[in-house]
Computed example of a mutant assay.
Amino acid sequence: MTAASGGAQTARPTRLPRSARRKQLLAAAQQIFVAQGYHAAAMDDIAERAGVSKPVLYQHFPGKLELYLALLDTHCDAIIAKVQDAMHSTSDNKERVKGAVRAYFDFMDHESEAFRLVFESDLRNDPQVRQRMERVEQGCIAAVTDTIISDTNQESSAAELLASALVGACGQSAQFWLANGRRTPRAEAEALVAALIWRGIASFPLQGSATGGTPAEIG
């Protein structure tokens, strides 16, 4: 507290812990990057949106690229985690497919529009950005590959190919649905895509099935 004229006292601005400040700055940066794209965004705009001075912003992030990459890391990790959770949260393969589809639709349909940073970046030619895009794809494919190998005993190369097809279908369909104005209600869109994928993946027999039955027959 500091003394003011007339005996009044004013409080000093609250100083946020470093982790909280970083979260605040990332949230402000995301709004600017989503609205303006990387190239048009300015650190001045981000600092103003966060309500801090530029020196404070630079204390946490040495430059615009580092700030952008930190955001990408956050959202790339989130997508991978969603797909991993879809694989690990149930042993019902039909539900796993639904969960993988839902993970992509959740991300694409989120009000933050963070998907634009990952799938519509105007900085895709930058090696560090491209590396993160590839990490998202490979991380999601790996999660599905492990499940396919565990359940069907497919060779790793075949399982990875199947996982790539599943992940590709989830991502492309969710992007198409959003780009075309959500003309199909989301629940219906998810069900359609999941049904298409399931009809393909269910034709591969479960490992250890005495009857040679398919996942569809068993689950």
Rank of each mutant, 00 (worst) to 15 (best):
173 S>T: 11
148 I>P: 07
198 W>H: 04
166 L>H: 13
140 C>V: 03
193 V>K: 12
147 T>D: 15
134 E>A: 10
123 L>Y: 13
144 V>F: 12
185 P>D: 08
176 F>C: 06
143 A>V: 03
132 R>Q: 10
126 D>V: 03
211 T>R: 08
210 A>V: 12
135 R>E: 09
151 D>H: 07
175 Q>I: 06
176 F>R: 15
114 A>L: 00
166 L>C: 07
122 D>S: 05
134 E>R: 14
129 V>F: 01
118 V>I: 15
147 T>C: 14
145 T>Y: 02
185 P>V: 02
141 I>C: 11
144 V>S: 08
163 A>V: 01
118 V>D: 11
123 L>W: 07
176 F>W: 12
149 I>E: 12
176 F>V: 08
137 E>I: 01
204 F>E: 08
142 A>W: 08
135 R>W: 04
116 R>S: 07
204 F>S: 08
179 A>C: 01
175 Q>D: 11
148 I>G: 03
130 R>M: 04
196 L>S: 06
163 A>E: 11
173 S>W: 09
172 Q>V: 01
212 G>D: 10
145 T>K: 15
206 L>P: 03
172 Q>K: 11
190 E>T: 03
142 A>Q: 12
127 P>R: 04
205 P>T: 09
173 S>L: 02
161 L>C: 12
201 I>E: 10
136 V>W: 03
178 L>S: 08
132 R>Y: 03
172 Q>D: 14
157 S>M: 07
